[in-house]
Design a protein around this nucleic acid. Sequence first.
RNA 1: GGGCGCGUAGCUCAGCGGUAGAGCACUGUCUUGACAUGGCAGUGGCCACAGGUUCGAUCCCUGUCGCGCCCA
Length: 898
Amino acid sequence: MLDKTYDPKEIEARRYPEWEQAGAFRAHPESAKPPYCIVIPPPNVTGSLHMGHALDNTLQDVLIRWRRMKGDDVLWQPGTDHAGIATQMVVVRNLEQEGVGLAVEGAARNDANKKLLSREEFLAKVWEWKAFSGGTITGQLRRLGASCDWSRERFTMDEGLSRAVLKVFVDLYKAGLIYKDLRLVNWDPKMLTAISDLEVESREVRGSLWYFKYPIEGSTDEFIVVATTRPETMLGDTGIAVHPDDPKWKHLIGKHAVLPLVGRKIRIVADEYSDPEKGSGAVKITPAHDFNDFEVGRRHDLEAINIFDKFARVNENAPEKYRGLDRFDARKKIVAEMEELGLVEKIEPHTHAVPYGDRGGVPVEPYLTEQWYADAKKLAQEPIAAARDGRVKFVPERGRDEFFRWMENIQPWCVSRQLWWGHQIPAWYGPDKKVFVELTEEEAKAAALKHYGKEVALERDPDVLDTWFSSALWPFSTLGWPDKTPELAKYYPTNVLVTGWDILFFWVARMMMMGMHFVKEVPFRTVYLHGLVTDEKGQKMSKSKGNVIDPLELIDKYGADALRFTVMSLAASQAGRLRLAPARVEGSRNFATKLWNATRYAEMNGAALPKGFDPATAKLTVNKWMLGELARANTTIDTALAEFRLNDAATALYEFIWGVVCDWYVELTKPILQGDANSSEGGPEKDETRAVTAYVLRETVKLLHPVMPFITEELWDKLGHRAEHGALIGQPWPVAPALEPDADAEMGWLVKLISDIRSARAELNVPAAAKLRMLVVGGDGTTAKRLETHRAAIERLARIEGIEAASTAPKGALQIVVGEATYALPVTDVIDLKAEGARLQKEIKKLADEVAKIDAKLGNAAFVSRAPEEVVEEQRERRSQAEQTRERLSTALERLGS
RNA sequence: GGGCGCGUAGCUCAGCGGUAGAGCACUGUCUUGACAUGGCAGUGGCCACAGGUUCGAUCCCUGUCGCGCCCA
């Protein structure tokens, strides 16, 4: 006998290892079954599970478990990402607490007392950290129930994947798709590395707009006024731009100004970049520290003077007294000095967007450096074509438009990072800086020997690759590429990629580029995008806001199944965010309990599946109806999953299990199972109902398994199916039997009759304990037969005692109209006749309103002539039904008073 | 500034041309032999606003307002 409540903790802890040890998650590339593959978006190796993971991986696991049951050879490829900058940051922070720093150039200036680690020493620390915390997230994914094939777990820096990364880099370099270039990059002065455009987030900052007066060369009283949000960059100004048609400044074009504080002569140029409406209409140009200025500078051949070092401190290209100042200190000093010189015209408060590094959290500095770039524009061509012709589909479809928007305006991708943790770039430099890009140092040496004609010392490029460079290869590198493995042959292209909108560009776009280029095929056929999980108020969860909901706490409290069901129900939102209300998880837990207890009930009532039971042989209407509902639910769920409407599948399961099986089927069949119609040992009706109950539960547990794997596996076992068929996870998906429309009509009538009686009783405050007699007036032969069939159920569920036919309703009875018959429940001594009159009048009015509404429609000639025939017919039918019921209720009302 | 999405019950959200739905909350009632993590019955909506298309609009189109996200 099952316990009274479902205890997820114990069951989850037991079931997961059981599946894993039995090899239930394993892919079978050698099998003849059709492949179905999802590669996991690899979480940071040292990370821990947050709500985003919970959502993302639940959706994947639902699809995976469903396809596994559908008979596919399923591979859910797991693994983790080395997360270069994020991991390095965490380890650096840990080390700092021990007073240890990195031996990077210039670091000693900051932290003279620190012990400084070499690159090798630091990397050893990171590997240590990985060994220490690396299993956390995969353990947490297991707690969620994720049925990944862990025997195939990969890591972006493991041997095989590293080999793939190097090969890709070398091949792209040799194809001219990776090159070195000197241009402005987004420089993170805290992390001391270049970052890509995508890693920059702009934040609205309330600052100031300073209007500086720059004297015109050769004049003592003429100035040009430039407006700037970044006064400190004036140290690197090499020009001033004004709009060619701006009457205010037109006359100064071609002249020079003298840069205050520095004394440099700078040219005034005409450029449409300058907007006469903005600021003063004149813009100072600092080509080395602003992306727009860089372009302007290039157009007018202005020098780019780099005035910062990598810490964003003023360097030796600026006048002595500013050197070494942090950029913000420099700003203060410069503003103060300009004010002293009387060169500040005004200062306006100004809100503007400032670029911040998404990891370091400090403003990034446009910085002129040499970096490695991938030619994203060329690499984007094939992906764009594939998205256009449907080789890759997006769910929802607008993901495709977003994809195009990005891919069609794509900029060169800066792939080098000045970090230590990551894949070191396979480039070696000769004495004259000539670069040799090869897979190994030996090959580089060989190439150098050929080039120089003698052995020379080579120095390896110290930089590592952007983390997303290796992630971009994930769908094929994890399958064994560059080797021609059976896995690659069978599972690539993968079927679906499930991920959030937030990494569409970071990751999805880049996988498309690399997949198309190296495997000549899309990496996945469908991209299924979901929103960001936020708190109830729609706020992004963050530690600083203190609104983080920890999925593990929810699992502890309500069970993994409850969390999974909840996030799956949330997954529909077209909005970019999914607000998670913890109350919903509680609701899902209650849902699990409900199913648990329905099974407990079945067990108590001897529900068991006879060998070779064929549901098609069921004779009782209620059972035929139940089997039809099961078939309908099956189709609804199956279709919803196939169309990635996972929330619809969740709703259908809930409605079916709670609303149909528990609320109606179990209640309707209680008289059969618990009554004395047959002996307690059995009898044809009891046997059939026990069998159908068992059958329905068995199939239900299968339908629910992809979403709630733990409780269903447990119930499957408890119901005794495991012994015969093995674990539920490996069972075939149920086949929907044919529907029984006759039973539907009859049961629809029954449900309505019972519901209406209950409503009337409740409204008239008839005590639940009071059992009423029921007189049937005007019922036809079909009704009489139905009443006989379902007598026991009606009596039990509507609290009735005795059903008999009558020619008229007695005085002072509660009256219900269903179909052609009126049902009178004599209760004179218990009810208030006035209240019953009011109730009937309310019903009548409702129906009269409906009739009037339909009449208005049917009275409209345009409607009758233009609306489809079946719509018109439907309205006529509804009118006639409503009118008939209204008339019968009117008769009932009259009878009440007489 | 450009693009996209969202404004539906008190809250969180489905629905998206023809009877407005769910969960939670709320009200009443019931320890009915599975379940009070429950049963039964209810209350609660100018479907943001204004135009348009249509026989018919919560749904399609345009605009306005509010909120959010992405890209400059």
